[in-house]
Amino acid sequence: MSKPPLNELAQQLLGKPAAQLDPEERRVLETIEAGTLVSRDAGDVADERESFGDRLSDRVAAIGGSWGFIIGFSLVLVGWMLLNSDVLSHFGMAFDPYPYIFLNLMLSTVAAIQAPVIMMSQNRQASKDRLAASLDFETNLRAEIEILRLHHKLDVAVVERLQALEAKIDALGDGGISSPRSR
């Protein structure tokens, strides 16, 4: 049995011509036509598409948004302040005495760089979520179409079986065998 072309499948299963299909619908019908699987792992697909900058922004966001970073950074800040307030100022060598103007400049610079990198990572995560939703839609659409096709096959099989039984009953009635009603 030959497989129907994409346009025929689109009309039969989705009720619209192939030219009006969404990309997801087209991929689903192409996989049905080819007899292959449609489900894919969103993480793997996203990893295939990511660039070095994407991986870097994810890594910076992962480090900058961790308790280890917060604790370590707090220790560095306290150490900086103690070093410039007590230790080095005692010897007259404090390079950033209170009110820590250089420290404030460095903190502002880190915040100015870190915020856009974290936003890039969030945008990338949103993109991954959209990709996962699209792949889920494809899988759900494929499952729904396959269920409809199975229902159709069962309906056809039931109708064929009923027609065969009806033909047998008609043959028995025509063959001279009397039914209990005719006696």
Score class of each variant (00 low, 15 high):
residue 32 I to G: 07
residue 68 G to S: 02
residue 118 I to H: 03
residue 25 E to F: 06
residue 112 A to Y: 04
residue 139 T to L: 14
residue 149 R to N: 06
residue 81 M to P: 03
residue 92 G to K: 01
residue 64 G to L: 12
residue 53 G to N: 14
residue 68 G to Q: 04
residue 144 E to F: 10
residue 108 S to W: 13
residue 61 A to Q: 04
residue 176 G to R: 00
residue 133 A to Y: 00
residue 161 R to Q: 13
residue 18 A to T: 08
residue 2 S to V: 13
residue 134 S to L: 05
residue 5 P to K: 09
residue 47 D to G: 10
residue 57 S to I: 00
residue 121 S to T: 02
residue 85 S to L: 11
residue 120 M to E: 03
residue 130 R to F: 10
residue 170 D to M: 15
residue 100 Y to K: 00
residue 31 T to Y: 00
residue 67 W to Q: 12
residue 159 V to N: 15
residue 62 A to F: 07
residue 173 G to P: 03
residue 40 R to W: 05
residue 7 N to Y: 05
residue 23 P to A: 02
residue 22 D to L: 15
residue 135 L to Q: 01
residue 74 S to H: 03
residue 88 L to T: 07
residue 30 E to T: 14
residue 27 R to E: 15
residue 158 V to P: 11
residue 162 L to R: 12
residue 98 Y to T: 09
residue 18 A to S: 15
residue 28 V to E: 01
residue 174 D to N: 10
residue 107 L to Y: 03
residue 129 D to N: 14
residue 15 G to K: 05
residue 2 S to Y: 13
residue 166 E to R: 12
residue 54 D to L: 01
residue 68 G to L: 04
residue 127 S to C: 02
residue 122 Q to T: 03
residue 88 L to I: 03
residue 147 I to S: 14
residue 67 W to Y: 12
residue 141 L to A: 05
residue 35 G to W: 07
residue 85 S to W: 09
residue 114 Q to Y: 15
residue 58 D to P: 04
residue 137 F to G: 07
residue 124 R to A: 01
residue 68 G to K: 01
residue 66 S to M: 06
residue 97 P to H: 00
residue 73 F to H: 00
residue 168 K to W: 06
residue 11 Q to T: 09
residue 157 A to S: 12
residue 54 D to E: 04
residue 63 I to P: 02
residue 2 S to M: 14
residue 132 A to Q: 00
residue 144 E to N: 13
residue 166 E to G: 10
residue 150 L to F: 11
residue 147 I to Y: 15
residue 151 H to P: 02
residue 40 R to D: 06
residue 21 L to Y: 01
residue 69 F to Y: 14
residue 31 T to R: 14
residue 157 A to F: 11
residue 111 A to I: 15
residue 43 G to E: 14
residue 161 R to I: 07
residue 120 M to N: 07
residue 14 L to A: 00
residue 28 V to D: 03
residue 47 D to I: 03
residue 181 R to K: 10
residue 101 I to N: 05
residue 158 V to E: 08
residue 129 D to W: 03
residue 18 A to L: 09
residue 112 A to D: 02
residue 35 G to F: 09
residue 89 S to I: 06
residue 147 I to K: 14
residue 26 R to Y: 08
residue 138 E to S: 12
residue 23 P to V: 01
